[in-house]
Amino acid sequence: MKTDDLVLMLSTNVEPIARGRVARTISIAVIAGAVIALGIMLVALGVRADLTTTRAAVFLLLKLAFALAVVGVSLRYLIRLARPGSARGISPLAVIVPFAAIALLGMLGLADAPSAHWNRMVVGGEWLECLLSIPTIAIVPFAVTIFAVRRAAPTNLFRAGAVAGLVAGGVSAMAYAFHCTDDSLPFVAVWYGGTIVLCTLAGAALGPRLLHW
């Protein structure tokens, strides 16, 4: 095939393209993933029963703030990774900020408490449930997000996969927060932060295979 003929074929009757499609597709996918994650949490786990108490409500908001910060920052970075050669959007380092903030809060929480309480504050009552739930709930949001990123053009597949995993982990943590009754900052830092990092690693491992085009 002559390259000239290909150029002619591709440029004949070319359709106009709507602007901002990449950002829109990926954002919609993440919102859909969040709705699905909330649905899974409601059906499989249920919202915590003690939400009427101030302490429970404050901790729910805190967990949500952390999860939404993770999602917000990583989503913007993911959109950038989905466009070749993109310089717009945020720096890769920004994705660390929510984790650094929660780690700092967790350490302050520990510093504020007698060391005899540390073990209980970190391990909590339901660490195993948290460890299993966040990665499990993240599976569907991850699949939906990957599907959307595939329609764009990621060129660093390892990194794009990792950040897709990060977004899905954040979305999942947001849903799980409605169920979780472990109200301590170190717990959130270790188990929420840790499981989201696990999701990120899984995404990095799967990225090159799932995102290749």
């Binding site: 709507a18 466009r83 717009r88 053009a153």
Partner: peptide, 11 residues
Amino acid sequence: LKRHTYDTREL
């Protein structure tokens, strides 16, 4: 096939 991923605000 990927021309929709070019953002006209970028180089």
